[in-house]
Amino acid sequence: MTLDLTPEETTAIWLTLRVALVAVAASLPVAILVAWVLARCRFPGIVLFDAIVHLPLTLPPVVTGFLLLLVFGRRAPVGAFLAEHFGLVFSFRWTGAALAAAVMGFPLFVRAIRLSIEAVDRRLEDAASTLGAPRALVALTVTLPLILPGILAGGVLAFARAMGEFGATVTFVSNIPGETQTIASAIYTYTQVPGGDGPALRLTLISVVLSLGALVLSELLARRTRRAIGQTRP
């Protein structure tokens, strides 16, 4: 077995990285916001909200993909709105793959950030207020730096999840080489044809290396961040 990649495989790898990165970057602000609400706000129905956020974790990916189709499809309410007003089309595009990957990784992302927000010593935030910082600046200058390791950890989890996403993606935006065919979809395709085991293994190896690389990188970053914000690992 050699690692001479076909152009199709190279495309799938780059596409996967792009999809995963965009998925993480685009869901980052939303994830922080939702995590904040879950960690800090109390309102009737929060349990339901929490459950909805975690839905992609519990639903079969294919169902999530189908729900995405119902909401973000080109004739679906949100999908049509976004296409008309922002020119954002998901249907059979890599953007749709990124959306599916973002949605599937979202609960993991939110969970990690939420835990770190709950771990923040709120007395530090009180201290910042007494020093004259308005609420938004407290969040920006105290809370945010303190939850950075959680954001990082959640981002890597979401990235890893995005890299491996298959079920929702293929249901939502199909499996089109060069457009929506990620490593996971390519592996699937190869395992479905006689003689596809070699390329499938090759891509599997690459995705293992990429995932491990991301995890190691994040661990190193997390250590550095923890040192930088003065937290020592217990």
Binding site: V62, F66, L69, L70, G73, R74, R75, A76, S91, F92, V170, T171, V173, S174, N175, I176, Y188, T189
Partner: peptide, 20 residues
């Protein structure tokens, strides 16, 4: 110009939802 569906049901969903 082909979008591949994982199975027949997914293919039906793409067309019935107006994606293709």
């Amino acid at each position: 110009r082909i979008a591949f569906a994982e199975n027949v049901r997914a293919a039906l969903a793409f067309v019935s939802r107006g994606e293709a």
